[in-house]
């Protein structure tokens, strides 16, 4: 398990405890990271539950089991799809 920085979109700051731009969690997979973020900041829970895209090193993650390498860049974005 590694220390990972999860970048939030700034509209979510208000929902964190302490107006944070990013959240530090210990996680090795996407699923673990999301659970850990919600545990630290229950205000984010409904947003995460409604569905977000997790972008790791520029690529939208395709699975909650996807491994996050230490040092990877992790961004939360509104869920993406298309027409």
């Amino acid at each position: 398990m590694a220390r990972i920085t999860v970048h939030l979109w700034s509209g979510l700051r208000r929902l964190t405890d302490g107006d944070l731009e990013s959240v530090e969690v210990d996680a090795s997979t996407v699923g673990e990271a999301l659970v850990a973020v919600a545990a630290q900041h229950p205000g984010l829970e409904p947003v995460l539950a409604a569905g977000v895209s997790v972008v790791i090193d520029g690529e939208v993650s395709t699975s909650r089991r996807q491994v996050i390498q230490p040092g990877s860049e992790v961004y939360l974005m509104q869920r993406l799809k298309g027409g």
Partner: peptide, 20 residues
């Protein structure tokens, strides 16, 4: 409105986002 919408906006605003 969902949890992202700050107080004080019209109830027709149902999602709010801010990033940069």
């Amino acid at each position: 409105a969902d949890a992202t919408v700050p107080e004080g906006l019209h109830p027709n605003v149902v999602r709010y986002m801010e990033f940069g």
